[in-house]
Amino acid sequence: MIILEQIEKVYSSLAGDVHALKGTDLQIQQGENVVIVGKSGSGKSTLLNVISGIDRPTSGSVFVFGQDLNTLKENELALWRGRNIGIVFQFYQLLSTLSALDNVLFAMSLVNKVPKTERKLRAELYLEQVGLDAKMKKFPSELSGGERQRVAIARALANDPKLIIADEPTGNLDSKTGSQIDELFAKLSEQGTTLITVTHANIKDKYFDRVFNIRDGVLSDETELQNAMAV
């Protein structure tokens, strides 16, 4: 379960303080498939940063699967994140000097959660799951955008995370590849993985358990509205 209580996040800059999150409360159940929709600058990235522990809130508490993130030190937080959260970035963010297989293996090696002897087998399995069994030895520069995103998903799965955070996972993909990725996420959700997707795109043709909208740092649950629109 993910619980955010009264999260405030203020960035200071020369132009003055920016209130990125304003008293945000959020609860997401285990296995839920959630989407957060918002325009650029609305605070959705900050929200994801806070949930994943990449950034700390100015005030408020973050509990992810019972762990109070505020109590963890920077290094502990990194390790905890690697073991519990899989992140899929908008621009894939693969390590360009490693092959597809090595990108997945590397994520395992950093966290040491998966036993050494099983790593290669599991990495190959994840890559097979995302349809890249024939391109495991290819480097990111040799893969298409969709393939890179699939490697990124396989990497996010590497340490068998309870939560996957996806930032505009289909934002840079053509519609066909985008649909493939959506199917993959749906499958993951069915398997019980908690999914949080962030997008500013139209989501009316996609299914999510819950839909949140974020505007000027204020989060609102619009699941019912969305359902009504879908009907």
């Binding site: 990194a78 963010q93 950093l110 340490n159």
Partner: peptide, 16 residues
């Protein structure tokens, strides 16, 4: 820099 960010976000500590 971004790569370090990625490394950290996928579980790499500063020490690592």
């Amino acid at each position: 820099t971004r790569e370090i960010g990625v490394l950290k976000s996928i579980g790499s500590s500063f020490r690592k």
